[in-house]
Design a protein around this nucleic acid. Structure first.
Lengths: 335, 335
DNA sequence: CGCTCCAATGTAATCGAATTCATCGATAAC
DNA sequence: GTTATCGATGAATTCGATTACATTGGAGCG
């Protein structure tokens, strides 16, 4: 591979001029620029990335860690991230943490080693390494969270109002006449779950139905949805509606409902969360909360770029609009 | 951030010794090593990645381009890639090309700029830049394909036997007694589609049913599945079975079937392809071909690492086992 | 006792581009 | 006509780690 020296020699100019042709073409005379570009093409020159990075201390990469890339919710957020990053000249380093703390730490180290200019994490845990960096540099540390806002965390973030969204779901169900409602949450350590749970509880209270609530704790997977929904369905005083904190869990719940020869929505109404691409192709079409997935991706990148460009000094926690999408999986309870 | 010089000074040794502590600890005396490590911890030193990369000409990164990250098939392959890469000390640079040639070229340039040690592409197009590199360096060029094997392409790859898998699907349907079968393919430019189509045709021929075949060309998306299946269903001489070249298209087809108040599998049998995680949670549970998604990811990484380590000199095109998974969406045709 | 050899460590060149400062020539101002 | 000014370009330093080669001191051997 040709280096900048080769190009300089070939074009009969200095390396400084070649470098300028790329990074500040307005400083170089047009004929000179052309001479250089010809040499570049003749030699097939491409600037060496490591050298540039060493000199400028910039990698033009964003590290994105995600609990599970095979989850369509996350993969759509990632898609938004990738798109916004590419548009700004950054590329995406992907870290699938598989919900494992060890991997989160591993990627945090990667970030500290300066393998990326910024870090976006879509999980809820903040590895120690990152906490230290944040403590040292404050809100200008290029670390941003997506989806899992927690007030104590000293990072900017983009997310929806999970509490309100969950309350809206409950209002929808109460509005249809449901009384006994089962809720399948995610792990309560994650704000995504605890916020939604708060919304559920406040709505239940408002409607005076707190004692008719039934809870089960899932982990956002299809299987846990099936398992937890089964528990709720088999208890005495079966609920007439189930609210799952993810569409995947709702898919599992659908299966549990079918296995018991019950019908959704006739016997059991079902609500999911996220509005993944598949939600409207399930049978029945799933009522759910739409999260602006790609937009979340765009926003977290914007937040990060603001920090990187020194444009923002204070934390920003952005709330994006969600939408309750009522489809065919919810109906008034029987009799 | 502390540099290796700082550590050397702090520990009272040379930079060479510090470097050796990390890359070849057996060359350095234990007490020295300890002194260095203490300094490292005191200063919070972390080797600068760009500098290391410039010197060694290695990035420890693998660039993976994928036509659509939000497709659960690809995201599971990626998961396998990520896992195998991480285990080997590599990290994954993600490139979502959105099926766009321009983006593929863009990522190819990134690779040529040496931003990654190797490239895995999961699409079927080989950008010109890469073709040039392959022509220049031959089979030791660290470029590997996943899923879309094409004999002419001078790259190693890992994939299933798409032709045979498709033939098995047809055998299954013919075995159930179906005669009029509709097929929704993907874009025929991709070997994944043309190979499967070849399998379909050979099976049809073997069963003497070629003239009862009906074709529609989709693009692997849910929507195209719905659209193309609708066409097949509305033609005179409606097929009694539809074979879609992806599970997503099969989901769309299910919807089209329902919209016409037909029942799957009573009126129409349906087969998908890939066995994405959701296939067994659809209603009816989808009969499909299981691709070893994560294993494909592992294999392509292995192939790539072999090239990078200079272990392999010849092309390798690996065929991995697939499996026809018969579930509830296929049955014998009525009367 | 002197020499060889080896283990441990140090010195300094190197990777390839960016960038500061110097230089040169031409133009403009006086 | 001399000098300040500016635009274009070049020379040389720098980024931070790796590593080939040099050096040092001690063990082993005759």
């Amino acid at each position: 591979m040709a280096t900048i020296q080769d190009v300089a020699r070939e074009a009969g100019v200095s390396t400084a001029t070649v470098s300028r042709v790329f990074s500040a073409p307005e400083l170089v005379l047009e004929p000179t620029r052309q001479k250089v570009m010809e040499a570049v093409h003749r030699l097939g020159y491409e600037p060496n990335f490591a050298a540039k990075s060493l000199r400028t201390l910039r990698t033009e990469k964003i590290l994105v860690t995600v609990p599970d890339i095979s989850n369509p919710f996350f993969s759509q957020v990632i898609r938004g991230v990738e798109e916004a990053a590419l548009a700004a000249g950054y590329s995406v380093l992907l870290g699938d943490t598989r919900h494992e703390e060890a991997r989160e730490e591993q990627y945090a180290l990667m970030f500290r080693r300066k393998e990326a200019d910024g870090l976006i994490f879509l999980g809820h845990r903040l590895p120690d390494v990152l906490a230290e960096m944040l403590a040292a540099k404050g809100p200008r540390t290029p670390i941003v969270n997506g989806c899992e806002f927690r007030p104590g965390l000293a990072v900017s973030s983009a997310h929806i109002d999970n509490e309100r969204a969950a309350a809206e779901v409950m209002d929808h169900l109460y509005g249809l006449g449901h009384v006994r409602i089962g809720v399948v949450t995610g792990p309560l350590a994650s704000p995504i779950s605890s916020d939604r749970l708060a919304g559920v509880l406040s709505a239940a209270q408002r409607h005076g139905r707190t004692s008719a609530l039934r809870m089960a704790i899932g982990d956002f997977s299809i299987e846990s949805g099936a398992r937890q929904a089964a528990e709720l369905l088999d208890e005495p005083g079966r609920p007439t509606a189930i609210f799952c904190f993810s569409d995947e869990m709702a898919m599992g719940a659908m299966e549990a409902i079918r296995q018991r020869s019950l019908d959704c929505p006739r016997d059991i109404s079902l609500v999911g969360f996220d509005d993944i691409r598949f939600a409207e192709y399930l049978h029945p079409k799933l009522t759910t909360v739409r999260q602006p997935k790609e937009q979340i991706g765009h926003e977290v990148v914007r937040l990060l770029l603001d920090i990187l460009a020194g444009r923002s000094t204070a934390l920003q926690n952005i709330t994006l609009p969600h939408q309750l999408v009522v489809r065919d999986s919810t109906a008034a309870p029987l009799g």
